[in-house]
Deep mutational scan, measured.
Amino acid sequence: NQASVVANQLIPINTALTLVMMRAEVVTPMGIPAVDIPRLVSMQVNRAVPLGTTLMPDMVKGYA
Score class of each variant (00 low, 15 high):
residue 1 N to G: 15
residue 1 N to E: 15
residue 1 N to P: 15
residue 1 N to A: 15
residue 1 N to R: 02
residue 1 N to S: 15
residue 2 Q to N: 09
residue 2 Q to I: 13
residue 2 Q to P: 15
residue 3 A to K: 04
residue 3 A to F: 06
residue 3 A to C: 15
residue 3 A to I: 08
residue 3 A to D: 15
residue 3 A to P: 12
residue 3 A to V: 08
residue 4 S to F: 03
residue 4 S to D: 01
residue 4 S to Q: 02
residue 4 S to L: 02
residue 5 V to H: 01
residue 6 V to K: 05
residue 7 A to Y: 01
residue 8 N to Y: 05
residue 8 N to K: 10
residue 9 Q to I: 11
residue 11 I to W: 02
residue 11 I to N: 00
residue 12 P to S: 09
residue 12 P to H: 12
residue 12 P to R: 08
residue 12 P to E: 10
residue 12 P to G: 14
residue 13 I to F: 08
residue 13 I to L: 09
residue 13 I to S: 12
residue 13 I to P: 11
residue 14 N to S: 07
residue 14 N to Y: 08
residue 14 N to C: 06
residue 14 N to F: 13
residue 15 T to A: 09
residue 15 T to V: 11
residue 16 A to N: 06
residue 16 A to M: 11
residue 16 A to P: 14
residue 17 L to S: 00
residue 17 L to V: 03
residue 18 T to C: 05
residue 18 T to G: 05
residue 18 T to F: 14
residue 18 T to K: 06
residue 19 L to C: 05
residue 19 L to P: 12
residue 21 M to A: 05
residue 21 M to T: 03
residue 21 M to E: 02
residue 21 M to L: 07
residue 22 M to P: 00
residue 23 R to C: 10
residue 24 A to I: 12
residue 24 A to R: 03
residue 24 A to E: 14
residue 25 E to V: 03
residue 25 E to S: 05
residue 25 E to D: 13
residue 25 E to T: 04
residue 25 E to F: 03
residue 26 V to I: 09
residue 26 V to S: 15
residue 26 V to T: 13
residue 27 V to M: 15
residue 27 V to N: 03
residue 27 V to Q: 15
residue 27 V to S: 11
residue 27 V to W: 02
residue 27 V to C: 07
residue 27 V to E: 03
residue 28 T to A: 10
residue 28 T to Y: 06
residue 28 T to K: 03
residue 28 T to R: 02
residue 28 T to S: 14
residue 29 P to Y: 12
residue 29 P to R: 03
residue 29 P to K: 10
residue 29 P to A: 14
residue 29 P to V: 13
residue 30 M to T: 14
residue 30 M to S: 13
residue 31 G to N: 00
residue 31 G to M: 02
residue 31 G to A: 03
residue 32 I to E: 00
residue 32 I to P: 01
residue 32 I to H: 00
residue 32 I to W: 02
residue 33 P to N: 14
residue 33 P to V: 05
residue 33 P to E: 11
residue 34 A to K: 03
residue 35 V to I: 08
residue 35 V to M: 11
residue 35 V to K: 04
residue 35 V to F: 11
residue 36 D to P: 01
residue 36 D to A: 08
residue 36 D to S: 06
residue 36 D to H: 08
residue 36 D to T: 05
residue 37 I to S: 04
residue 37 I to F: 04
residue 37 I to K: 04
residue 37 I to D: 00
residue 38 P to G: 10
residue 38 P to N: 07
residue 38 P to T: 11
residue 39 R to S: 10
residue 39 R to N: 06
residue 39 R to E: 04
residue 40 L to N: 00
residue 40 L to S: 00
residue 40 L to F: 02
residue 41 V to R: 04
residue 41 V to M: 07
residue 41 V to W: 04
residue 41 V to Y: 05
residue 42 S to I: 03
residue 43 M to S: 09
residue 43 M to P: 00
residue 43 M to A: 12
residue 43 M to L: 13
residue 43 M to K: 12
residue 43 M to H: 07
residue 43 M to W: 08
residue 44 Q to I: 12
residue 44 Q to N: 07
residue 44 Q to Y: 12
residue 44 Q to E: 07
residue 44 Q to C: 07
residue 44 Q to G: 05
residue 44 Q to D: 06
residue 45 V to H: 00
residue 45 V to I: 07
residue 45 V to F: 01
residue 46 N to A: 08
residue 46 N to D: 12
residue 46 N to I: 10
residue 47 R to S: 08
residue 48 A to Y: 10
residue 48 A to N: 09
residue 48 A to P: 07
residue 48 A to E: 13
residue 48 A to W: 06
residue 49 V to M: 07
residue 50 P to N: 14
residue 50 P to V: 10
residue 50 P to H: 09
residue 50 P to M: 11
residue 51 L to A: 12
residue 51 L to S: 13
residue 52 G to C: 13
residue 52 G to L: 05
residue 53 T to G: 10
residue 53 T to D: 15
residue 53 T to S: 08
residue 54 T to A: 08
residue 54 T to N: 02
residue 54 T to S: 08
residue 54 T to L: 05
residue 54 T to Y: 02
residue 55 L to K: 00
residue 55 L to F: 08
residue 55 L to V: 13
residue 56 M to N: 09
residue 56 M to K: 08
residue 56 M to Y: 12
residue 56 M to G: 14
residue 56 M to D: 08
residue 57 P to C: 14
residue 57 P to T: 05
residue 57 P to W: 08
residue 57 P to I: 06
residue 58 D to E: 14
residue 58 D to Q: 10
residue 59 M to V: 08
residue 60 V to E: 02
residue 60 V to T: 02
residue 60 V to N: 01
residue 60 V to M: 06
residue 60 V to G: 01
residue 61 K to Y: 08
residue 61 K to S: 13
residue 61 K to F: 07
residue 61 K to G: 07
residue 62 G to T: 05
residue 62 G to A: 13
residue 63 Y to Q: 07
residue 63 Y to E: 05
residue 64 A to W: 03
